[in-house]
């Protein structure tokens, strides 16, 4: 029964001695906090970016005549280009590098490093979310926009109440992937000394010199979280199915 004894010894070292389970608890709490806030920031900003860019694409279809209309058009054109650049940069630079830039350059003096993580990851996620939502919007039949506009609804109302709910539904599986990605990518925050789940395992491992238990444990925790997330989304998907075309 040697392996059971060594298992119990490892378990004891990893979790019990010096109340090390508390390190994991802190790490878990931070991982979840960062994931949730980043996702919220990412969803809100990403959807906003997608709407703005789609709205501008719609606007291009109309002629501009008055000076006011031309000014508005020019401003929207510039905003659209800036957003395109934003998405390109966020997707083109490694997240770790973005996190380091955010922590040591942009928000260098900011005391709450956890918030810095959330902002850096949220802004990064927003770029991906905006592309996912854009894809969802493009998947909505062009007749939906026409039907809304032909009833006299404005572009904004039609986008918000007709196009987006349908776009969201087709984007849901990809948004779920984004949620999973954010959860797993949050494991890099140890780079700026935030104790997340991964960092917690590092701390414990460096004390106990027994790598297997903490690493397998956090792997399991990440996996279970991802499973829970997928399960939640699949329930949401099923509930949204009721309006599908027959």
């Amino acid at each position: 029964m040697g392996w059971i004894d060594s298992f119990m010894a490892d378990f004891n070292k990893t979790f019990i001695v010096d109340d090390r389970y508390k390190v994991f608890l802190t790490g878990f709490k931070n991982t979840i906090t960062i994931t949730l806030i980043s996702l919220l920031v990412g969803l809100a900003a990403g959807i906003l970016i997608a709407i703005l860019r789609y709205g501008f694409a719609q606007m291009k279809k109309r002629k501009t005549v008055t000076f006011g209309q031309k000014v508005i058009f020019a401003v929207c054109w510039i905003v659209d280009k800036i957003l395109a650049l934003y998405v390109a940069v966020m997707r083109g630079v490694p997240l770790v590098v973005q996190l380091l830039i955010m922590a040591f350059v942009v928000m260098a003096g900011f005391p709450n490093k956890l918030m810095v993580c959330c902002i850096a990851m949220g802004l990064n996620s927003a770029a991906y979310v905006s592309e996912v939502v854009r894809g969802g919007i493009n998947a909505v039949d062009a007749g939906q926009m026409e039907a809304g506009r032909s009833l006299g609804l404005g572009a904004a109302d039609t986008i918000l109440y007709i196009i987006l709910p349908q776009a969201f539904k087709s984007a849901l599986p990809a948004l779920c992937n984004e949620g999973i990605a954010v959860l797993k990518e949050s494991s890099i925050v140890g780079y700026i000394a935030i104790v997340d789940l991964t960092r917690a395992s590092d701390l414990v491992r460096s004390r106990t010199m027994a790598p297997m238990m903490p690493l397998l444990f956090i792997a399991l925790v990440y996996f279970v979280c991802v499973m829970l997330l997928s399960w939640g989304v699949s329930i949401l998907e099923r509930r949204l199915k009721q309006g599908d075309r027959g």
Binding site: G143, A147, R149, L151, L153, G154, P165, G243, D244
Partner: peptide, 27 residues
């Protein structure tokens, strides 16, 4: 066709029916 006029207001007076119905599937 003059962009200074509010097209949404004008469209409210013109009902349109499409070949593919275009009902809103989520409502």
């Amino acid at each position: 066709t003059d962009p200074r006029n509010d097209i949404n207001k004008m469209r409210q007076k013109m009902g349109m029916v499409f070949q593919h119905f275009n009902l809103f599937p989520h409502m």
